[in-house]
């Protein structure tokens, strides 16, 4: 399960912008939205005749496998780095 998502943006003027997103607290804060999204996904699975349990199992695997992902893009003096820990 990811714990922390880090976003670092380096702008051409040299001022870095860093954002740390603690996943669990953010999910808790947005839990009403998360519940609605889960219900919407379940309805979509039923409409398209996809096994709901298998779909949620696969989605959960994706969430738990995401730590270690790192995307780093640099162009000239601009850089964006996203890491999931």
């Amino acid at each position: 399960m990811p714990q922390l998502v880090t976003v670092r943006v380096e702008r051409p003027d040299g001022r870095p912008l860093r954002i740390w997103v603690p996943v669990l607290p953010v999910v808790l804060v947005f839990s009403p939205v998360v519940v609605l999204a889960v219900l919407g996904a379940a309805v979509a699975c039923l409409v398209f005749r996809v096994n709901v349990a298998r779909a949620f199992g696969a989605a959960w695997r994706i969430v738990t496998a995401s730590p270690g992902t790192r995307v780093d893009v640099e162009q000239g003096r601009t850089a964006v780095l996203v890491t999931i820990r």
Partner: peptide, 14 residues
């Protein structure tokens, strides 16, 4: 320009 992406293979399997 440099792009450096690291994706866990476990994520690909999922």
């Amino acid at each position: 320009t440099r792009v450096n992406v690291r994706v866990p293979l476990q994520l690909l399997r999922a």
